[in-house]
Amino acid sequence: MAFAIRSGWHRPAPDVDIERSILPSGDSLSLRRDSPGGHIPGEAGVWILLFGEMTFFALLFASFLLYRTSDVAGFTASQAHLSKAVGLTNTLLLLTSSLFVAKAVGAASRGDTSSAPRLFRLGLACAIGFILLKGFEYHELFDRGIAIDSHVFFSFYFGLTVLHLGHVVIGSILLGAMSVATGKMLAKPSHLALIESGGCFWHMVDLLWIVIFALLYLVE
């Protein structure tokens, strides 16, 4: 049986959900299944990173709202300089890339070495689109003479979006790496756990942007 699991891992039949097909015996996947109650995406450890980052950003968001209460009019006036259309396009780009990445992780778990890398590359293309559009948005603002010190709102705008952009860049590097890694058969179950964890990181980057978009572009 152990042999069957292992060989199944290396050469799964196409379109067969490998998780479900080998789950009943399952011990080679014990890393990924800690309880009968459910499956933790990635593995438990990655949630140190994900919850940690989300807590950190939550503190930043709370500070934004706190500063905002002291000067609601100024914040609203500054917000008018931002283009909702650009923000929305970026939101759609990240949501689309998240969809590609989710499908890519699914393909990787089925051992599909042709569509997983392609889906990761599509996700990466959306991420690059996001980065370019952000650059364009910064350029527009600078052209109009808006900088970090124009208003506290813009301190937050540049601080939060630059910080998030750093996460997008790190995530893009991960997406590139995962598209290379899933081009060949994953050698160990722990490699799939890493791919899933990378996917979770990307979903977090997406989720954080949605909150940033709501706070900076939409709150009125």
Binding site: G45, V46, L49, G52, S63, I148, V152, G159, L163, I170
Partner: peptide, 25 residues
């Protein structure tokens, strides 16, 4: 490994201090 990855992601925040004199940045 994951805790260290968090540390790595966080360490990019340091240089931003060059830009700000007040506030959380």
């Amino acid at each position: 490994g994951y805790l260290t990855a968090w540390q790595l992601v966080q360490s990019f925040g340091g240089p931003i201090a060059v830009l700000f004199k007040t506030g959380i940045f």
